[in-house]
Amino acid sequence: MAAPPGEYFSVGSQVSCRTCQEQRLQGEVVAFDYQSKMLALKCPSSSGKPNHADILLINLQYVSEVEIINDRTETPPPLASLNVSKLASKARTEKEEKLSQAYAISAGVSLEGQQLFQTIHKTIKDCKWQEKNIVVMEEVVITPPYQVENCKGKEGSALSHVRKIVEKHFRDVESQKILQRSQAQQPQKEAALSS
């Protein structure tokens, strides 16, 4: 343990542990708070995104088998200043999104609708649920089953743009399904082959 005095974990060290839930956790130490016995680990993104990572905050009180896989002696990089306001706004929007989504869900919107909503929302922030209808930019209304032909509104760039998004969304969904199937089939083949 090359951790500096007062610190039990050096930043950058790889640590693994097991929670009381019998969950195995491993990641790079980002921070450790002795007071609260909190250990922050950075793990590769669960979604596989390259520049993203999952941050785990582990309460060592409920963890066992803490192991330091490899230590890091290098001084950690300086901390970058954070844009607090940006974070605050993010927190706010995230909350609103979730609530909005929850509203839609509670309204009985189909999964496809919710997915479509999420997709549209990525591109166009000005969209909201109105009952089961998705209202985009106050102009275009997408009614269940949320297909391209369900996009209604004043003819114009807005409508055509929304239609393109919807069209692409379902195309992506289809391709994703195919991909999933193919992926699902491969194991089977492998199993078959192996067998």
């Binding site: 929670t19 999952d54 941050i55 905050l57």
Partner: peptide, 13 residues
């Protein structure tokens, strides 16, 4: 026990 933040962009903020 543990808190998981998924898909964090360290450079975001």
């Amino acid at each position: 026990v543990v808190v998981q933040f998924k898909d964090m962009d360290s450079s975001y903020a």
